[in-house]
Design a protein around this nucleic acid. Structure first.
Length: 836
RNA sequence: GCGGGUGUGGCGGAAUGGUAGACGCCGGGGACUUAAAAUCCCCUGAUCUUUUGAUCGUGCGGGUUCGAGUCCCGCCACCCGCACCA
């Protein structure tokens, strides 16, 4: 029975069921095999799987299947990052409960993932909105609270007036909410915080050990944590108070000509209270835009408070300004202004006509060198600075720090840019914060035997704001301590907490605890974590923090959750637009000669830039339709072909067609095996052995595009070769090599070749090292640095023989044209270069 | 402004300092077919040349080297991240 075509519509489902029934990809924690935890960032159940998911999960899938073939016990799980605002928005717009909306999306997306044939352990599937999951999260949150890692304080927060919620600093982009895009306001609220700043140093130092993380991500986190060292010291003010400031350049202290405080600094508030002009200026500062463009051009503005600060060394009085460029939430919210050596201070001093002194110069003789329109921020020697004169910048810093500490007016300190993580959200669809407010006992954690604190189902989304707060009964409870009337916390946790420990729950999921430390130890850390670069800071930093925090409180013994991180590129597509600027989807247009037109009415269409697939630009291609047409294997193959995985992958109709053709090409190749063929084809056999090694190396380096190219090469060679035992061997090898990438086709062939069991359980082919070595090599012959001829020589030929062979070449002789040979360079097995 | 990345045919991209363009896509020509689809074969960086072949060619300008896409110095362009962080 010879079928001329592979029919994915029949084969795909059959094998997906076979794997599921056999439990092929169920991970066994008690296995004695080496363990591999392969993880892709779990999806938010938005409704549909998109091409970005497909690419992400295909990469992880190839790794997982490959690791299994190499004899590893593989954990490759999948779940749902199911809390979040889209569900509440859907509730408001479509009048469905966030829970049912989310569950329906999960069901649809799971079916889509299963159609692609991913080697996932579905027995460990969970959604973060499962009460079992968030109940354990509540329990961990209480543990952290009891260890002092959770605290509550009133704080000015970023309030999103459209989503009616608080946003973390990280969720404010250019002064606007990351989701709503609305201008963020400042509000004071009682908030829950996680003490990520306790771990700032650890999180920074830990980056050094993450050798298999992209340099880019490590740098982004490093900048985000933002360590700086300097001197914190106090000025004595003319009004009797002290003004603490922070500076990284105490060496320039003799160049200080003013002080400046933030608009919301206590001193500014104090002055503003009695001086309407000051109050007006403070208001103006708060109104000032915070977008990049506005900051770029914003003028440095100040308001002289009339208060002066006494210079700690010279005793000179320095004017104290309220200034629009000083930030309250960094350092002490106040700075000393050194115009000569800080660009902002320079601009400020120029505007307000303050002295600009030089205290750092390239050389002592340059002590009076004028400024050239900007501050001198470079290195040099200290000048015009009394006892610091002649010192290097570094030595002067140390000297000033020492004198400040000895004098008791300052201390060398480290300042971090990282802020504590505000996790309170005034939303419904999230993990309820498991605390109770009692008028007598204060804030009391919910006793663990009462967890989970579950969300009520009967909620109203008609009015904006937090449905939990409006619920008639939910928040009413008894205090666990005194039994009196009390109120439940109505804030829920930021969804980033859900994704901060989910990998631990994948590794181990007992009923009565978040995880079992022993099982966690078996699987963690994640060997390969794959996902988008957009999580470089938030999710990845929070997950690192939770892991360290859980280690700190003795729950686990792992410090870093992800041994290797891979950030894959996006799937992109050309964009199409009409003359009026409206976007068209790829399905609505077609090519007409050299131009694009709308199919419907032939209207001319402009093909625009190739950008990330997005609903707004309509340049999306739905995976389901493509799978219907070409089958799962063709889609998987496309995702791995051509573009290196870290770069963007441009989707193209021609590309997927090519992949579909290749699936059929392989089918025909496998069908062409003549089991009775005999004879050796050493060159082909060698190619097969080489491919086994090369494809393995490529997969391990996640260079899937190269692995794909190697398989194409071997396939081409096998197609052309006459029947032989070697050819059958090469074809069998191809079958194994493609099986992680095209698992359905591979199973189908495996069955047709009467092999037993599933190829998914088969081992990676073993290569013969002796067969990797060529016995003949092609030698390039160069003259004047250019290629003149190539010749064939036995592998390992002597230098003299190669030289003689090269000189014997007619082409080489013609190029030499009788010139005198000065030197001959011979690289064994590679080339001969003749220098004249 | 600071930090990082990328730049190679018509396109996606290969290439331990050693034959630039593997592999795929597009395109051209041919075979098979009544025809089409499918499939197979050949060609496909540029210029010159009938061919043999020659010259040029990895963003730009220098340099190191017998030999540079690869190393060094100096630029340019584009993309990404951060940004009044004292």
């Amino acid at each position: 029975m010879t079928d001329t075509r592979f029919d994915p519509s029949r084969a795909d489902g059959r094998w997906q069921r076979a794997w599921s029934e056999a439990g092929t990809f169920t991970a066994d924690s008690s296995s004695s095999k080496p363990k591999s935890f392969i993880l892709e960032m779990f999806p938010y159940p938005s409704g549909r799987i998109h091409m970005g998911h497909v690419r992400n999960y295909t990469m992880g899938d190839v790794l997982a299947r490959y690791k299994k073939m190499r004899g590893h016990e593989v954990l490759h799980p999948m779940g749902w990052d199911a809390f979040g605002m889209p569900a509440e928005n859907a509730a408001m717009e479509k009048k469905v409960h966030p829970g049912s909306w989310t569950r329906a999306n999960i069901a649809a997306m799971k079916a889509q993932l299963q159609r692609i044939g991913f080697a996932l352990d579905w027995t460990r599937e969970f959604a973060t909105c499962d009460p079992e999951y968030y109940g354990h999260e509540q329990s961990l949150f209480i543990d952290m609270y009891e260890s002092g890692l959770v605290y509550r304080r009133s704080s000015e927060v970023n309030w999103d007036p459209v989503d009616m919620t608080v946003l973390a600093n990280e969720q404010v982009i250019d002064g606007k909410g990351w989701r709503s895009g609305a201008e963020v306001e400042k509000r004071k609220l009682d908030q829950w915080f996680l003490k990520i700043t306790d771990f700032a140093g650890e999180l920074l130092d830990g980056l050094g050990e993450l050798k298999d993380w992209p340099e880019k991500v490590r740098l982004m986190q490093e900048n985000w944590i933002g360590k700086s060292t300097g001197l914190e010291f106090s000025f004595e003010l003319s009004n009797g108070d002290k003004l603490p400031v922070y500076s990284t350049r105490p060496d320039t202290i003799f160049g200080a000509s003013f002080c400046a405080v933030a608009a919301d600094h206590p001193l500014a508030q104090q002055v503003g209270a009695s001086d309407p002009a000051a109050a007006g200026f403070i208001e103006e500062c708060k109104r000032g835009g915070t977008t990049a463009a506005e900051l770029e051009t914003a003028e440095k503005l100040g308001f002289d408070t009339g208060v002066t600060a006494k210079h700690p060394f010279t005793g000179e009085p320095l004017p104290v300004f309220i200034a629009n460029f000083v930030l309250m939430d960094y350092g002490t919210g106040a700075v000393m202004g050194v115009p000569g050596h800080d660009q902002r201070d320079f601009e400020f001093a120029t505007k307000y006509d303050l002295p600009i002194a030089r205290v750092v110069a390239s050389d002592v003789s340059e002590a009076d060198a004028p400024f050239e329109g900007e501050a001198a921020t470079g290195d040099g020697v200290i000048v015009n600075s009394d006892f610091l004169n002649g010192m290097s910048v570094e030595a002067a810093k140390a000297e000033v720090n020492a004198r400040a500490e000895a004098g008791g007016w300052g201390n060398g300190t480290t300042v971090w840019r990282l802020r504590d993580w505000g996790v309170s959200r005034q939303r419904y669809w999230g993990t309820p914060i498991p605390f109770i407010h009692c008028d007598t006992c204060g804030v009391v954690p919910v006793p663990k035997d009462q967890l989970p604190v579950t969300l009520p189902d009967d909620v109203d989304f008609e009015t904006p704001g937090n449905p939990l707060e409006r619920h008639p009964t939910w928040s009413k409870t008894a205090c666990p301590k005194c039994g009196g009337d009390a109120r439940r916390e109505t804030d829920t946790l930021d969804t980033f907490t859900n994704s901060s420990w989910y990998f631990l729950r994948f590794a181990s999921q007992p009923v009565d605890a978040p995880f079992d430390a022993e099982d966690v130890a078996k699987w963690m850390p994640v060997e390969h974590y794959i996902g988008g670069i957009e999580h470089a800071i938030l999710h990845l930093l929070y997950a690192r923090f939770w892991t360290r925090a859980l280690k700190h409180i003795g729950k686990i013994d792992v410090a870093e959750p992800f041994a290797a991180l891979f950030t894959q590129g996006m799937v992109t597509h050309e964009t199409y637009s009409l003359g009026d600027g409206s976007w068209l989807s790829p399905a609505e247009v077609r090519k007409d000669g050299a131009d694009w037109i709308r199919i419907e009415d032939g209207a001319p269409v402009t093909a625009g830039r190739v950008v990330k697939m997005s609903k707004s630009k309509k340049n999306v291609v739905d995976p389901d339709g493509i799978i219907d047409e070409y089958g799962a294997d063709a889609v998987r193959w496309f995702m791995l072909s051509d573009s290196p995985p870290e770069r963007d992958l441009p989707w193209s109709e021609a590309g997927i067609e090519g992949c579909g053709r290749f699936v059929q090409r392989l089918w025909r190749l496998f069908e062409s095996v003549d089991p009775d063929a005999s004879g050796e084809d050493k060159a082909l056999a060698r190619k097969a052995h080489q491919a086994v090694v090369a494809v393995a190396e490529d997969i391990e380096a996640l260079s899937f595009n190269k692995a794909v190219a190697r398989i194409y090469e071997l396939t081409g060679a096998a197609e052309k070769a006459p029947p032989s035992e070697s050819r059958n061997f090469a074809i069998r090898t191809i079958l194994h090599l493609v099986s992680p990438m095209m698992p359905h086709l591979a199973e189908e062939i495996w069955l047709r070749q009467n092999e037993s069991g599933l190829i998914a359980d088969a081992a990676w082919p073993v290569h013969d090292p002796a067969m990797l070595v060529e016995d003949e090599v092609t030698i390039a012959v160069q003259h004047k640095g250019k290629l003149r001829d190539t010749l064939t020589a036995p592998k390992g030929a002597a230098k003299e023989d190669l030289e003689a062979l090269a000189l014997a070449s007619e082409k080489v002789q013609r190029s030499l044209d009788g010139a005198e040979i000065r030197k001959v360079i011979v690289v064994p097995d590679r080339l001969v270069n003749i220098v004249t």
